[in-house]
Every structure is written in C-alpha cells, then in structure tokens.
Design a protein around this nucleic acid. Structure first.
Length: 751
RNA sequence: GGGCUCAUAGCUCAGUUGGUUAGAGCGUUGCAUUGACAUUGCAAAGGUCAGAAGUUCGACUCUUCUUGGGCCCACCA
C-alpha cells in the first residue's frame, strides 16, 4: 500500500469495476421487500452543484446500506429537460450569436435545443459517476424519452376524459420578455420603491402605481362600509382622462382596504390579479390593453405601441399637464413579482390549460393531502410536513400550459374550420419571413394551412365566451384525418411531466419493474420543491394508481455558501464541487456534506469538515497499512476471528464498542440521522480503534489474538463506513487478507 | 400581515421523549514522536447554552414574552 491514500488514483477504477460487475443492478433476496429510490432528475444540460452532491451522497448511502442488507435494491437515474430554464439558457446563447428564437419555426427551435441538450448531457452523467452514485444505468430515463411522452400524453387524455383538465381564460403571470407564463410558485418577489400616483378620477382621488393600465379600467371600487363613498356605490360616474372622458361604474367590495391611499381603487380586471377576481364577482368586462409583447394595444389610443414603462411616463406627464395628478408619493415601498430571469411580471388574461385540483366528483388533491395527514406518507424532518399540508389546503387550479417550445407539446388539436377569423397564427414561410395574424388573413395571402403548420411558432385561440361555439378539440398525438386541424403550440409545465416521475421511470402501468418496485421506498430531495414536485408526484400517484408513490420523504437542507449566504453567481460565492473533488476526493466531499448538517436544516458549505474527512480517509488507510505490516511482521498465520479466542479485557472492550457502534449506525440510519452515524463511526475508528486499541496491540504478547480481533473490528467498521465513503473503503478492502469480491456486496454487519 | 426556523467554545455546528463534570470539526497554546499516519500522538485553554419570567425536586432541553438573524407564504392597489 502507498504511504498515503491517493483518491485520484483509485476513484475512477473502482467505479468502473463496480459497474462492470453489475453490482448496481437489483439483486438481493427476492423474498425481501425491495428498496427503491428514484433520483430527482437534475437538469440534463446543467452541471452538478453542491445540492446535487448532497442528494447523491444521501441517496447512495441509503442504497448501499440496503444493498448490503440483502434487500433487492434499485436506484434509477435520470435527467430532466427543465423546460423554461433550458430554453432561457439556450436563448442567451443564441443572443450571443446575434440570433433570436423568432428566426426559427417551432420545430426548428426544438431541434436546435435538442442538439444543445444532447451535447451537454454527458457532463451531468459523468459527474454522477464521479460522485460514486451506484445507480442502475440500464434504467436511465430522460424526461423526453418516447416512453415518457407516451405516459404523459395518456395521463393528459385520461384527465381530459375525467373532466380534470380544462381550457379557460385565466389571470396568469405572463412575462413579456420570456413570452411565457409562470405559475405562482415559480415567481420571486422583490421589494421596490416606486412612485405612487394619486390621480383625480371624477369625484375621487385614487392611488395607483400603474396609471398606464387606466385604459383597461372597467370599474371603481370602494369598501362596502366606507361612509365617505357610500352615496356613489352603484352609480355611474363621469371621469375626465388623458384620452377624453369616459364613464365607470362604482362597486363596493371588501377587497378594498379603506385605510390604504384614499380608499378608492380603480379596477382593471385584465391586468391585476385582485381586480380580476373582483371583476369575476361583479361581472365586469375584462378589457385587455397590453399585448403579448408588453406594449399597449389600440385600446390605449395614442399610447398604443408604447411599452408599459414608456406609456407610464407619458401618461403621468399628460395627467400632470391636464391637472389630473393630485400628488405623487415617490417613496412607496411595495413588492413586485419577477420571473425566473428577473423580468417584471405582467398579469394577463390568456387561454391556458388547467388541472382542476379539487373536483367534487374526484378530487385530485384530496388523497394526496390525506396521505400525509394520516401518516401513510411520512415526511422527515417532520416539521416540514406543515409546508406540504398548508400548500395542499390552499392549492388552486394548476395552470399546466407553458408558452415554451422546449418541453412536451400538449397533445391537443383544434379544428379551425369556421374560426379562421379568430385564430391567430404566427409562422415562418419558406423564405423564413415571419407572418402573424388571423388564419383568414394568411389564407388570403395564399398560404395553405399546411404551410402554417410547417413553419408555426405560435397559435393563439382566444376564448371569447365560454358558451360560444369553441373550435372542436381533439386530444391525441396524431392529427385527425377529417377537418382543418392545428396543434396546440404550448408545452406542459415541466412539473406536469416530472410529477409522473415514479410512473415513467418504472414503466407504468404494466412492466415487471412497476409491479416489483412501485410504490418506491424513499423520495429524497431538497425541501424547496415540496410544493412544486413532491406534492404533484403524490397527486399523480393517487390519481393513476390509488397508491402513494413513496413511503418516506426525506428533505435535505439547502447548501449555502461558506459565507452563510445563498450561493449566487453575482455574489461570486458559488462552491464548485469539482474543485473539492479534485483536492480532497469524493469521499471527503460526500462525508463532509452529510456530517455538516443533522436534521434537514439549511447549512453553510462545511469546508472544514470536508478537509477533516479527507484526513480521516488517510487515517483509516494508514490503519489498514499498519495492520498489514503488523501481520507481516508477526509472520505466522493469524487465526480467523471467533468468539472462542482467549480474549483480553481490551479485546472485550473494543468488541463491545463495535457492537454499540453497529447498533448506533443502524438506529441512526433508520431515523434518517445520517450525521449521527457518520460522527459515531469517525469517533470509534479514530479515537478508540486507532488511538487506543492499536497502541495497545503494539505491546501485546498474544499477537495472534490481538491481530485477529483488530482485523475483525477494522474490516467490520470499514463495512459500516462504506455507504458513507465508498471509494476509500473499497480500496482498502481490496488489500485486506481473505477479502471478497467487493465490499459493496458484503453482508451488512449486525450487532 | 400569517407561518416556519435559528440564536450553545474564537469560527462552523451537534446536543432525539427535561436528569450527574454541555460535545465535535477547524482554529489557538504547550509537550511528544525513528513499528503506520505531520493528513500524527498526548495535553491544555476556551461556553453565566441571546435576554427575562414561569412550570418542575431538577431546564440548553417545556411554556410565555423580549431582542436579533434566516426563510417561506400572502391580492394591499
């Protein structure tokens, strides 16, 4: 053995050896209950961050532990197409080349991104190998694999049939820059100081931060109990505006806070979430004045074509000029909603597909709520449960359509016949010229529907009136034969497909894997996606299989930067795991992360611990080296350890310690207390075995007994340590006398 | 505004049903070291467990409040 453990020399070879010998495939005693984990799929085009490393460390630990216990053990790897995120990344790259997505048809853009992802995909897969993940690569799943698409399409069709998905107008969080909508949970909120404008509105003065949306106002609201304005309620009032006079109805609604501003609110149902809901309650007209590019439309008169920001400036200036601006509070602090890329969100009313989450006939969310409530699914740490339960209680219908190209296209066709005037199509013709407008216009310009389909970027099919005759809808991947059809250009929200991860990875509904390994054992992930992902998997699981998709949920904490702040590129405090792997080895990095936190709380990247465990790896390496040296110097055969040996009190003590350790590790792992187990092994090996027992062996007369006990204790602790630090333990094990094929398939020590 | 969470040694953190001298890693100080390991050993210094009140025979651990962090949710225009 070398003088020091060299992780660079060992890690790659060991992983190749494990994989080559098929150790990662499920074996074990077929009579025992299988143990299954599905990897939370990382972004296929991304690279590994510290959170992923922690995830792999914990999952690999559980997997290796159960595999050694002889359970049929399966860990399925995979990657996610990460719709919005990937498309944003790709578009940034396009921009650098001076191009934009509008130069491509939907199909071309999809193919471009597909190539982009394919060329980046190898990185994350290699990194999973590098981290020692003992996943079964033969079951690798990418969220755009054909069999995934098939399942997702079928699920959607079933939900459509069951009346659990519908198409409707809805107030969505639309980002004009990204050209797509976001769900509530994808947004971030930021505090800002903006001017609050007090505008004169007929007899009222009212406060707003968005005077430019005034063209979409369809009412004025006051609080029902507000005496000041009681006489106006129900009346129509005349308002002088920058575009001439207009009349508005005054309504009473308790969403108005009489203490804010003047207690009077302009109601703009098309561009404000609050107002939208008030609009629904009072049957107000929804008057959109902002288009999909974030510019004011023709309803804004002379302001048409201006961006929201420019229009605001101009409207404010004009109001001041006309003497309609009472005052401006320049230091108004409020929160604004931002999209992932940090752009301002424009609330808009658009047609979208939705999942009805609480249908009275068959509730999508109810079984998922109850599963956790009544302990059918157990969440660790337990105090995170409340996040899940509260979310489930509050959850509203889930918008599942995204105006992205990169993703799974919603398998819906619309029969445009008779609706050519209303349906708006954006497409590129053969010469790559962009056309947008209603289908009727394209037809007049001698384009065929086939040409539109071929070069399509987007189709918008407005819903004027729910009772009106809507275009016929066909749900399915293939275009129907008879009729004039055009496919929905929206894709599914990423979580709609990844929410079916336990089903698609295991071959739902009828594969052998599905029968054997579903429901899975543990879902391990970061707590920040309880609502986005965990809840959706549980809902789909119950909807399609009447069973929970997993028994336990373990939620690890977020790894913050060394300075205690959230890692971010702009702060420059991102910890790159590669550097630590290079310098200290995978084992040290994994063990450091696992020991760095005990109970799922967020924690700072535990740099010192990583270093400490690098030292620990070297320490046990040298313990092994010294053990071999002593055996060699002893010269004679060392007997196999049995309890029949004539043991000294020191021997008895260390054996007792080993027994306690074995019990502690088992107990801790059962409770998901990984750090406790790690700490116990560290203390025992270093301070009891190395510092005490080995020192005492040096002076022993009965070397045969002492070396026999030492070998036994040492190899047993190596086994206990293996799920935590797989590489160094295997490397040493291969040097031990009478070793087996691999430590990872050795039986798990029992007390 | 609602909720979750944290405040323990110089730093980063453990401390699982309340029970004898509160622990670890790193750091600091002193000594040691030619049978493995300087990625070593032995030893030491260092904490009124944020503050206050309460429950209890007994509280770092339970309750309430105060102070100060972090995070999540939320429609205050």
């Amino acid at each position: 053995m070398d003088k020091a453990y060299d992780h660079k020399k060992e890690e790659k070879n060991l992983y190749a050896m494990w994989e080559r010998n098929g150790y990662f495939k499920p074996k074990g005693d077929p009579k025992k209950k299988p143990f299954t984990i599905l990897i939370p799929p990382p972004n296929a085009s991304g690279k590994m961050h510290t959170g992923n490393v922690l995830m792999i460390a914990i999952e690999d630990l559980l997997i290796r532990w159960h595999r050694m216990k002889g359970d049929p053990t399966l860990w399925v790897p995979g990657t996610d197409h990460a719709g919005t995120e990937t498309q944003i990344t790709f578009e940034k790259q396009l921009k650098k080349q001076g191009k934009s997505r509008f130069q491509y048809s939907r199909e071309e853009l999809y193919q471009e991104i597909w190539q982009f992802v394919q060329s980046n995909k190898g990185q994350i897969e290699n990194q999973m190998r590098e981290m020692g993940a003992s996943v079964d690569w033969s079951r690798y799943t990418f969220t755009l694999d054909d069999h995934v698409l098939k399942t997702v399409h079928e699920t959607f069709a079933k939900m459509y049939k069951d009346g659990l998905v519908y198409r409707g107008n809805y107030m969505v969080n639309y980002c004009p820059k990204c050209g797509t909508t976001y769900s509530d949970v994808e947004l971030k909120h930021e505090e800002r100081i903006d001017p609050l404008y007090y505008m004169k509105y007929g007899p009222f003065v009212l406060a707003t931060v968005r005077p430019e949306t005034k063209f979409g106002d369809t009412a004025i609201a006051v609080h029902p109990t507000d005496k000041r304005y009681k006489k106006y309620v129900g009346k129509e009032i005349e308002v002088e505006g920058v575009e001439g006079n207009f009349t508005l109805k005054v309504i009473a609604d308790d969403f108005v806070d009489p203490k804010f501003g003047t207690g009077v609110v302009k109601v703009t149902p098309a561009h404000d979430k609050n107002d939208y809901e008030a609009g629904l309650r009072h049957n107000l007209e929804i008057k959109s004045v902002i288009d999909l590019n974030g510019k004011l439309n023709e309803k804004a008169g002379k302001y048409a074509g201006l961006s929201v920001v420019d229009a605001r400036k101009k409207v404010v200036a004009d109001l001041e000029e006309k003497g309609l601006m009472e005052k401006i509070d320049l230091k108004y602090l409020h929160t604004v909603a931002l999209c992932k890329a940090g752009h301002g969100i424009e609330p808009m009313v658009l047609p979208n597909w939705f999942v009805k989450v609480d249908d009275p006939k068959k509730s999508f969310k109810k079984p998922a709520y109850e599963a956790v409530k009544n302990g059918k699914i157990k969440i660790f740490p337990k105090w995170r449960e409340i996040t899940y339960l509260r979310w489930m209680e509050e959850m509203r219908d889930w918008p599942i359509s995204r105006q992205n190209v990169w993703g799974i296209q919603i398998p819906v066709w619309y029969n445009v016949e008779g609706h050519e005037q209303r349906i708006w199509v954006v497409f590129l013709d053969k010469t790559k010229t962009l056309h947008q407008g209603p289908i009727s216009q394209h037809l007049r310009n001698n384009f065929t529907l086939e040409e539109m389909r071929k070069g399509i970027q987007k189709v918008f099919i407005p819903i004027y009136d729910m009772a009106d005759n809507q275009p016929e809808i066909h749900v399915g991947k293939e275009m129907p034969k008879n009729g004039q059809w055009i496919q929905e250009t929206d894709t599914f929200d990423t979580w709609f497909s990844s929410g079916q991860w336990p089903l698609v990875t295991l071959g739902y509904p009828d594969s052998e894997d599905f029968k054997k390994f579903y429901p899975t054992s543990v879902l391990e992930t970061g707590w920040e996606i309880i609502r986005l992902w965990v809840s959706r998997m549980v809902m789909f699981g119950y909807y399609l299989t009447d069973q929970p998709p997993f028994e336990y949920v373990y939620l690890h904490g977020m790894v913050r930067a060394i300075d205690g702040r959230k890692m971010s590129k702009s702060l420059g405090n991102v910890v790159n795991p590669e550097e630590y792997v290079e310098q200290y080895g995978v084992d040290a990095l994994r063990m450091g992360l696992i020991a760095g936190t005990a109970n799922g709380k967020d924690f700072n990247f535990p740099r010192d611990r990583v270093i400490a465990f690098k030292h620990f790896g070297n320490k046990i390496w040298n313990m092994g080296r010294f053990l071999l040296l002593m055996r060699e110097q002893y010269g004679k055969d060392v007997p196999q350890f049995t309890s029949a040996l004539k043991l000294s009190s020191e021997d008895k003590k260390i054996l007792k310690g080993l027994e306690n350790l074995t019990r502690t590790v088992e107990l801790s792992l059962n409770k998901f207390r990984f750090a406790d187990a790690a700490e116990a092994i560290y203390q025992f090996m270093w301070h009891e075995v190395a510092d005490n027992y080995i020192e005492q062996v040096k002076a022993r007369e009965d070397k045969d007994v002492a070396l026999s006990v030492l070998t036994h204790v040492y190899v047993t602790t190596l086994k206990l340590l293996h799920p935590f630090m797989p590489f160094v333990t295997e490397a040493i094990y291969q040097q031990m006398p009478d070793h087996g094929e691999s430590i990872m398939i050795e039986p798990w020590p029992t007390a």
